[in-house]
Simulated scan of single mutants.
Amino acid sequence: MQERAKATRRSLLEAAARLFAEQGYAATSVNDISARSGRTSGAVYFHYAGKEGIAVAVVQDRFATWSQLAARYADEAVPPVERLVGLSYDIAYALAEDPVTRAGARLWAERATINAPLPDPFALWTAATTRLLAQARLVGHLNAQVRPARTARTLVPAFFGFCVLTEALEGTAAVTDRLTDWWQLTLPSLRPQPETRPPAGASANSPSSSLPPPGWRSSS
């Protein structure tokens, strides 16, 4: 019984997400969701208490929690800044290709039309970015002038706005290449600055974060 209920909830959520991503919150009805999912409208009200409830669930599922990215975030074998870069590609790919993530982003943009409070996804993103930057600072991979919390509060909205605007102007296929360009501009300001007077015969190299090659796609 529990497995059946879980499957019903999932099918409703995925059907609603596709509709929200395609046509927006206002243009999607409970009947649309039930028809797309093959379930009854009563099932929507039973499992999610209506369209508002399922909208909140869609935002929480991928856009506001990113539980599927926890393993990459916690992988201490990878330097912190490289983890941050890798996560950005995973998120950009999801925003471009994953229906539930796309729906979460669209619902967030349309939140004023939804009669229910949506979770703030950017608080989690900012906290995760702050922690990674703080870890990078501890191991000497961050410019001493960079303040993790302040920098995270700038990087997160800049990244999200960049992804949304790039897709709007150039389409989803351009996002990966443009993200590589974005990091090539951004990373030098995060890396430690070379010594102004390096020892004779020595080069002042700083740690670098590898960027995925053009056309890279997340395997997650």
Rank of each mutant, 00 (worst) to 15 (best):
A16H: 03
Y73K: 05
S11T: 15
S220D: 11
R36S: 13
A74C: 08
G24A: 13
L138K: 08
A103M: 12
L12M: 11
W125I: 12
S210I: 07
G50Q: 12
Q60N: 11
S67N: 14
A43F: 11
T40R: 05
T186A: 15
Q193P: 02
T154E: 04
D181S: 11
W125P: 02
A134M: 00
A127T: 01
A5V: 06
Y25V: 13
Q60A: 15
R72E: 13
L132P: 11
A105D: 13
G171P: 05
S67H: 15
Y73N: 01
S189M: 10
K6A: 15
S218Y: 04
R191W: 13
L12E: 13
S219T: 14
N31H: 13
S189G: 13
L107E: 06
C163F: 02
A57S: 10
S203K: 14
S88L: 09
V85D: 07
T126R: 09
V30W: 00
A202K: 13
V81R: 03
Q68H: 10
N115V: 06
T129H: 04
T126N: 11
A17R: 08
V56P: 00
K51W: 09
V81Q: 05
W183F: 03
A5F: 06
A136M: 04
S209Q: 02
A71K: 03
R10M: 10
Q23R: 01
L13R: 06
G42Q: 13
L142Q: 05
A136N: 03
A200W: 06
V59S: 04
P157M: 00
I114Q: 09
L211R: 02
A5D: 09
Y73H: 05
S219Q: 12
G171L: 07
D61M: 02
R102M: 15
T65W: 01
Q68N: 10
D98M: 01
F63I: 13
F46K: 14
S220H: 14
I54K: 04
E110Q: 11
A15T: 05
